[in-house]
Design a protein around this nucleic acid. Structure first.
Length: 710
DNA sequence: AGCACGCCGACT
DNA sequence: GTCGGCGTGCTC
């Protein structure tokens, strides 16, 4: 037994009969603690360890906040070669020591983050159970990015890594990636010359500089090509380039434009459409550094592009840029982190601008990349409005549910091409209003909103279900009901009757059309599902029930309404070619005026000024905590907030699905001044860890940048 | 989060 | 004397 001392420094290769000795070694270790310099690691089972670097630091894939740390494992000699940093492994975790033997412990997936000579853990290390693959997927820069995103969002590193590294597909790993191709030749500026600072931006990219811009794209079909030119310019300069788009359709358009510019083999399309194996194959080509161009949807924001020189994001106002899984990072914020940390160029493009985009310009971090008024006038359609008063006066509209102006514009435009009809919501009439005064119709018993079902029939209260057969308006005494919002399907039917002989196509949630031909047709679509029209674009667009987009009780209602209208209007040919847009909304409202004047920058700046006045994001940073009142109060007591923080609320909130029925929830908002966002996230994470380790009451869901404030 | 250790009440 | 309550702390 005295030989145990002599074995301290060896690889732990003792036989099974020495379990008593292991117990002693454990006790000795615990007593000795940090008195001695770090001992060479020993392991529990007798297998010999790797010679050079016998310790593997492992990120255990267990999304528990207080386990957001690395654990050291011994590397058996047999795994030495494969167990490189970044590879996927399996480890036993949570074992107990019973009579000097390890018992239990369940297998968990993880990643080796580092190979080391020693461990700062005082105790015998468990060995790696298995190296799953020798593919080094969690590379150092990707790990660093995940760490930053986890910190930014008060989340666990393992959760972010799960978002960043796709699941393993063994077959895709077996095949070698194609050889890297030489850098493509630089493209010409193309239609970037329409923007005053466009060519200068491209020249900076070509020089390998890091220009940062918020780009307000002109309406029309050129933006995928322009985005592709920016990517190709960075690739031609020998740098990597990454573009994130809100959906597969948009990504496919940019991918096609980029392929036309630089051919195949220098970039990949990372979208869900490819299927998991092919998507992983493409991701591997990026991770292995054989491809440096990436065009993709949200998850591509983490793509481990080597020598990244440009990150680009299109239409950051689209809600699909917000990740659904914890800690719910937003593509814009992730790409901003990448641009800052990896010193890359940055391009935030859209037909409109979010307040966040406006702030990047306002703060001077990014430059505006916008076209002159003349260019805007040359590209934009003519926008006209139909107000509520117009519509109420309009006898024909009340019969046909289509304002006379919209009807005239449509009939005229159908002689020249397709007409896009944007309808706020899918399905049938969801809500009813008084036909005379337009006040929302309410249930006489409980004041809930009235609606009619898919089948039609008697309207009923959507809260208590009571039928409202003999309804009369509480405001004006009117007794006729009017459909408040007409769904896409019903609109399509009515338009079909109004314009007999014209084909009607619909594009909505379940069947989204990518394109329609240039022949006359009525194309009814919900926002975000508008097909692109071939040739010169739509002859006209009708944006119906505009007020429905504006009436939502949301801080972003105006920005979002303008965004959706402008995206549809951008598909219409310019006014000089007869392109016209009719929007049914009050012309006095700010987003409506911004659409009519085609001034999205001005709108975003005014919104930003308002946010600053209210001290709302992005001028302040906010976080929310939701949960049962006791849990919310406990977290609020635990958290050590940075200076200048205030609390708003708590207010009643709805419990997320999966909670016990009738459980009361509330929500509390934290607000800190600009610059204290990181401190707020750190404080909330610390509080979460504290709560978790002492079994605090109930769940408290922390969310950085909550999307549904106000 | 699991899961086992620990230190105080009702039983054979 | 023993079985067992779940409070506390650890997981390489």
């Amino acid at each position: 037994m005295s030989s145990e001392n002599g074995q301290e420094g060896d690889t732990g290769g003792r036989d099974a009969a020495a379990s008593g000795g292991e117990q002693l070694a454990l006790i000795r270790d615990t007593v000795r603690k940090a008195k001695e310099p770090r001992a060479r690691p020993r392991t529990w089972r007798g297998a010999p360890l790797a010679e050079g670097l016998p310790v593997a630091r492992v990120l255990v894939d267990k999304g528990l906040l207080h386990l957001d740390q690395f654990f050291d494992y011994a590397v058996p000699a047999a795994m030495d070669e494969q167990a490189q940093p970044g590879v996927r492994v399996r480890v036993r975790f949570g074992a107990r020591v019973v009579k000097g033997r390890r018992e239990g412990g369940t297998l968990h997936d993880g990643f080796i983050v580092e190979r080391r000579a020693d461990s700062d853990f005082h105790g015998p290390l468990a060995p790696l159970a298995q190296v799953l693959s020798s593919e080094q997927v969690l590379t150092a820069p990707l790990l660093a990015l995940c760490r930053q995103v986890a910190d930014r969002y008060a989340g666990a590193l393992a959760d972010v890594v799960q978002l960043a590294v796709p699941p393993r597909m063994a077959r895709a790993e077996r095949d070698p990636s194609p050889d890297p191709r030489p850098d493509p030749p630089p493209p010409g500026p193309g239609s970037w010359t329409r923007y005053a600072t466009g060519p200068a931006y491209l020249q900076a990219l070509a020089r390998g500089d890091t220009p940062r811009a918020v780009w307000l794209a002109l309406p029309g079909p050129h933006w995928p090509q322009e985005l592709a030119v920016a990517l190709a310019t960075a690739l031609a300069a020998g740098r990597g380039a990454l573009a994130v788009l809100p959906d597969g359709r948009a990504a496919a358009r940019v991918d096609a434009a980029l392929t036309a510019l630089i051919g195949e083999g220098r970039h990949v399309l990372l979208t869900a459409d490819a299927g998991p194996e092919e998507r992983y194959r493409r991701w591997l080509a990026v991770s292995r550094g054989t491809v440096r161009g990436v065009v993709g949807t949200r998850a591509a924001m983490f793509a481990p592009v080597s020598d990244l020189g440009l990150v680009a994001l299109w239409d950051d106002g689209d809600s699909s840029h917000a990740e659904l899984h914890a800690p719910q990072p937003h593509a814009r914020e992730v790409l901003l982190l990448r641009a800052r940390e990896q010193h890359t160029a940055f391009l935030l493009g859209g037909v409109t601008s979010t307040v966040e985009g406006a702030q990047l310009v306002d703060s001077g971090w990014a430059l505006p990349l916008a076209a002159s008024r003349e260019q805007v006038r040359a590209a934009a359609p003519l926008v006209r409005t139909v107000s509520d008063a117009d519509q109420a006066r309009d006898e024909a509209a009340r019969a046909a549910r289509l304002p006379t102006l919209a009807w005239r514009v449509t009939r005229e435009a159908l002689a020249h091409g397709p007409v896009l009809v944007q309808v706020p919501r899918r399905g049938y009439v969801p809500k009813l209003a008084c036909d005379r005064c337009r006040e929302p119709a309410r249930c006489a018993a409980c004041a809930g909103p009235l609606e009619v079902g898919e089948q039609g029939g008697t309207p009923a209260c959507s809260w208590c279900g009571r039928p409202a057969a003999d309804w009369s308006c509480a405001e004006c005494g009117g007794f006729r009901l009017r459909a408040q919002v007409v769904g896409a399907r019903r609109t399509a039917e009515e338009l079909g009757r109004a314009f007999p002989g014209v084909p009607v196509r619909t594009s909505g949630r379940d069947t989204v059309l990518a394109t329609v031909g240039d022949a006359p047709a009525l194309v009814v679509a919900t926002p975000g599902a508008e097909p692109v029209a071939d040739g010169p674009g739509y002859a006209a667009a009708l944006l119906l029930d505009g007020w429905a987009l504006l009436n939502r009780p949301d801080l972003r209602a105006g920005e979002e309404a303008l965004r959706r209208w402008a995206l549809a209007a951008a598909l219409v040919r310019p006014a000089s070619e007869g392109g016209a847009v009719v929007v049914t909304a009050e012309p006095t409202l700010r987003p409506v005026q911004a659409l009519v004047r085609w001034d999205p920058a001005g709108h975003a700046l005014r919104e930003l000024a308002e946010r600053a006045e209210l001290r709302f994001p992005p001028v302040a940073r906010m976080a929310s905590v939701a949960g049962p009142p006791a849990a919310v109060a406990d977290l609020a007591d635990t958290v050590r907030l940075p200076p200048g923080a205030d609390l708003l609320g708590p207010v009643p909130a709805t419990a997320p699905p999966g909670r016990p029925r009738g459980e009361v929830w509330e929500r509390l908002l934290f607000r800190v001044p600009p610059g204290s966002g990181a401190a707020l996230a750190a404080a909330l994470k610390e509080a979460q860890v504290l709560r978790a380790t002492r079994g605090a009451p109930g769940p408290a869901l922390v969310r950085i940048d909550p999307p549904d404030i106000g």
